[in-house]
């Protein structure tokens, strides 16, 4: 069309643009984008808390009659710290112990209750010390102390983390799948709506490559723009979450990194790819056989 000023700014093919279609693709892209960000954040959160659980052991210390609780706890921390596979051991004060027990006792007043002395041992992630090794070392130090064996609970937590990750990924894939299906359907109906003009151009000698190019140029910008709008909304909500939830419990449950927001274009890419594949397929069907000119 080079040099033909009469065709400048004119598309030989124009997809019928319906606002409802654009809104639907935009909403699907927004949901897909949020699901994608949620999956990444949930995966990171699950990894964080399973790693945290695996990295720590709690030691319950019972003071002997001739020593105070803090003294016994300090000795236990010292003994535990000397064990290979323990990077750090620290005796908890009463406030910290109450905080640790709070999930189990909820609103109960702990001020008058005798609480055990607790020591938290941070383990080497590469070669973590086991409960048996620690118990032996504590006994050798003459302490009446015992490692709280949370092994079964840790395994359960790890399984739960795998479940959370799998669920989040499944939700993200389902949202992306719904977006792809919607983009596919809208692109297909746009091509069908253009079949008269396509038949005219075909009858005038436009080849398959030319028709494919014209059709893609008519359909994809609309799909891309709608999906980009939705993805931009997803980025904005992700950024809002990052800013507002920063440092809170919500942020630690779904820790989002700024870099995660770069995943948003994936939703646009999925929509555009689905629309392109749909366009090519339906175009083959529409132009499959020669049709009456007009």
């Amino acid at each position: 069309m080079k040099g033909w000023t009469e065709f400048r700014g004119t598309s030989l093919l124009r997809a019928p643009v319906r606002r409802a279609s654009g809104v639907a693709i935009g909403l699907a892209a927004l949901l897909a984008c949020l699901a994608l960000l949620g999956a990444v954040a949930a995966g990171r959160g699950a990894s964080g808390w399973t790693a945290g659980v695996a990295r720590e052991l709690t030691i319950v210390v019972r003071p002997r009659v001739d020593e105070t609780g803090p003294t016994a706890a300090a000795r236990a921390a010292e003994a535990a710290a000397g064990v290979e596979g323990v990077t750090e051991a620290r005796a908890l004060d009463r406030a910290e112990a109450e905080e640790l027990l709070r999930p189990w006792v909820r609103e109960a007043d702990l001020a008058d209750l005798p609480l055990p002395m607790l020591v938290v041992a941070r383990l080497d992630p590469e070669t973590p010390a086991g409960p048996l090794t620690l118990n032996r070392a504590l006994a050798e130090a003459g302490l009446d102390a015992e490692v709280d064996d949370a092994g079964p609970w840790r395994a359960e937590a790890a399984r739960a983390a795998v479940g959370v990750r799998a669920l989040a990924i499944a939700l993200a894939l389902a949202a992306l799948g719904a977006l792809a299906a919607l983009a596919w359907a809208r692109a297909a109906s746009a091509v069908v709506a253009m079949r008269h003009d396509l038949a005219v151009l075909q009858g005038l000698g436009a080849g398959p490559g030319r028709l494919r190019g014209l059709t893609l140029r008519a359909v994809l910008p609309f799909v891309a723009a709608a999906a980009a709008g939705g993805a931009a909304g997803g980025v904005a909500l992700g950024a809002l979450w990052k800013l507002l939830a920063s440092g809170g419990q919500a942020a630690s449950a779904l820790p989002l990194a700024w870099g995660d927001l770069l995943l948003a274009p994936a939703a646009v890419a999925v929509a555009v790819l689905a629309a392109a594949l749909s366009t090519a397929r339906v175009l083959r069907e529409v132009l499959g056989g020669p049709s009456a000119h007009g």
């Binding site: 038949a199 005219v200 075909q202 009858g203 005038l204 000698g205 436009a206 080849g207 398959p208 030319r210 009456a292 000119h293 007009g294």
Partner: peptide
């Protein structure tokens, strides 16, 4: 398609 470009056709159903 190349052959069609060598043909001028005006059908009963206008292909405008």
């Amino acid at each position: 398609a190349a052959l069609r470009r060598r043909i001028g056709f005006a059908g009963r159903h206008d292909g405008l």
